[in-house]
């Protein structure tokens, strides 16, 4: 059955933007959105930010479906694009790139467990414009031998920039690795004045 009538019944057309906005707002008002996400532009490129009712749960340089799939798996499948819920996050990020020194945002640590969580909590005490070595951070987290585990915690940091893994460097002056690429690490350290060149 593929004639003129059935072709016309196979209507095309997408949901009007105002209807989508209205549905998103209603879902939010009813508390049906466990993970709200948005994208935001930054000097380092597009970022994906996601929040739960507890706080910021993800800040990723990767902006793709896989980030959302991981959130659906590990937090809740009720994931919806809801930029209004991320206004404060996006504003503070803009301010950070314009020179703001501290973030004042509640965080949701759901995606980090065990020693990685302890390391990230310690990491948050590493101040703007300063750096620390992997070994130092392992010591501060109470496990001096766990340098490699600290490296893993940095590589898998779910909340980049706000949990400042860019401030962690190998001993000896090199920049080391960064989940967003070493060029971004260099740019953040320059922005904070921790690197002069």
């Amino acid at each position: 059955m593929n004639d003129h009538l059935t072709n016309r019944l196979r209507a095309t057309g997408s949901v009007p933007a105002d209807v989508l906005d209205q549905v998103r707002a209603a879902a939010d008002a009813e508390g049906l959105v466990d993970v709200a996400w948005a994208t935001t532009d930054s000097p380092l490129g597009r970022l994906l930010v996601a929040t739960t009712p507890v706080g910021l749960v993800r800040l990723s340089y990767r902006v793709d479906d896989e980030v959302l799939v991981e959130l659906a798996d590990r937090v809740s499948p009720r994931v919806l694009e809801l930029p209004a819920r991320l206004d404060a996050v996006r504003r503070q990020l803009d301010e950070y790139f314009a020179g703001r020194r501290n973030f004042d945002l509640p965080l949701d640590p759901t995606l980090s467990v065990g020693f990685r969580l302890e390391v990230l909590e310690e990491l948050r005490r590493v101040g703007y414009g300063t750096t620390v070595s992997y070994g130092d951070l392992a010591r501060r987290a109470g496990n001096p031998g766990a340098t490699r585990a600290v490296g893993t915690a940095m590589r898998t940091n779910p909340i980049a920039i706000v949990q400042p893994c860019h401030r962690v460097l190998p001993a000896g002056g090199a920049l080391g690795n960064y989940a967003g690429g070493v060029e971004r690490k260099r740019a953040l350290l320059r922005l904070e004045g921790a690197l002069l060149v």
């Binding site: 057309g13 997408s14 996400w37 479906d65 959302l68 799939v69 659906a72 798996d73 499948p77 994931v79």
Partner: peptide, 24 residues
């Protein structure tokens, strides 16, 4: 199988659901 993010489901099928509802 794990459930996909709801927003992906809506991206994929939302337009057809809209057309169905609108026609109905």
């Amino acid at each position: 199988t794990a459930l996909p993010p709801f927003s992906a489901l809506l991206d994929e099928h939302g337009p057809a659901v809209w057309r169905f509802v609108r026609a109905s």
